[in-house]
Amino acid sequence: MQKIIRLEGVSYSYYDRIPALSDISLEIGKGDNVAIIGANGSGKSTLLQVMGGLRDPSRGKCFFRDAEISERSLRDRGRLKFFRERVGYVFQDSDVQLFCPTVLDELLYGPLQLEIGEREAMARAVEIMQMLNIEHLKDRPSHMLSGGEKKRVALGSILTINPEVLLLDEPINGLDPKTQCFLLELIFALNEAGKTIVTATHDLTLVDEMQAKVVVLSEEHRIEKIGDVGEILGDQDLLLRVNLIHEHVHRHGATVHKHIHSHYLFHRHEDAKAP
């Protein structure tokens, strides 16, 4: 499979003091569906931002289609356009991403930047609005939308560019179950349609639903393991080590259970004991 993103020994630290990534080497193929998982502060978002050309690694290199991606290389107009029209980044906080006066303006912003004709840009925006069920919001300013609506608009604002790679930072965090389900189906469909999806999350349910290739980051900001979803989610020791599951006491009727808990996958009761 053709490799589309490649990281070689990438390290990053904030203000030369706080380490966020340590010696990360990784390859992502075209059409891959990759989930980067790890506990809070393990460096998932920073890794995604390095891949998105938003942060320059302190050490190591990041390549997109064999061309190095750095602040310096993206100063070239041709390279910047080439990269940005192929790699879309959806931020965890949709508020920071949406800055145009209305939802329609948000969707048109990318295509117009790409100098796509106004008619085609409008056609793209309409099609995306239909797909995301946000046609009724088109004249509304983004600050008057709910969390789920903002997330749809943020995703739509990237999809109108038609990128090859979608970098999604905690895409379903804080959304209601119906919106979560809608977005999951959409991400799955986009991957089926050939888009490369890279998702940063600590939600193991999402990883399981996505059936993605999984990259596990440790709390020491290193890659702990790369594997398929069954292999990773079946490895309780690994998930305990990277702090993604924990021991938990809870009650079922009159019985108190204590077991390893991830709110979804390890909800088993083999070791259950009556109090």
Binding site: L54, V96, F99, Y109, G110, Q113
Partner: peptide, 15 residues
Amino acid sequence: SVEDIYLAKKSRMIR
């Protein structure tokens, strides 16, 4: 927040 806003703008800056 300001830094995130800047990065969000950078991510959509094509020209």
